[in-house]
Amino acid sequence: MLRRMMLALVLALAIPATAQAHFQMLYTPEIALNEGGEMVLKIVFTHPFDAGHTMDMGPVQEFYVLQQRGSEGEPKKVDLKQYLKEIKWKGHSNAAVAYEAVLPKTVVRSMGDYVFVLVPSPYLEKEEDAYIQQITKLVVNVGGVPGNWSAPVGLPAEIIPFDKPYANWAGGVFRGQVLSEGKPVEHAELEVEYLNHEPDMKANTFKEQAAVTAPHDSMMTMGVLANAQGEFTIGLAKAGWWGVCALGAGPEKEYQGKELSQDAVIWVKAFEMK
């Protein structure tokens, strides 16, 4: 009886930990812009559904944007590392090292797509004694002229959107494909999480009020499998932000003698149809 009770306790403690998913956020409030201008981005490694434990980020390896107006021509690459500034971001249980980037209006000015790419340094998850590196994309559009939103950047781990990540109605779907060094990842394992607490851009924290309540832990972080071509479809049940992460999609499996999960993350925004 005692053993059974202990087992129940262990399970109860274990479940919340497994239900949470790490997500690299690359966030700016609006990604479907009518015109360009100064842009503020927050770069936070956290658990977006419950705004819970937030992780200290290490140095950023790469941060840049690829801009393209129209379907012809080559994307223009602008390095953005010079705009990074270390900040403290407060999750609901702790504060951690994160980054902010204030981009002058010259960066996001022209019409077209802006594919932001963040390559963080691997994060040591002590509980698992393994590293996590989430290579993250955020696609912004100015003025409605599309460009390179669906073009592969050529990252080691990458999600290619089949739907514009900035142009979705709530209730619609978002489709994509998981690539590892440009090749589809067969039956890729994905995690999907809703950004349940709106980020407070001024206070560098999440708002207290949650948008939804999950009836079950499996709906905080939703597990999705891609098909044999690495393609997947998710529903966008509610307006707001949806994070999609392909676990271990990248080719690097080891970092500093420990296991590495090189993940690909993309953020999608859905708008209320009203």
Partner: peptide, 11 residues
Amino acid sequence: CEGGFSDGSSA
């Protein structure tokens, strides 16, 4: 001024 079309074609 910049121009374009919503399908990505050139102006």
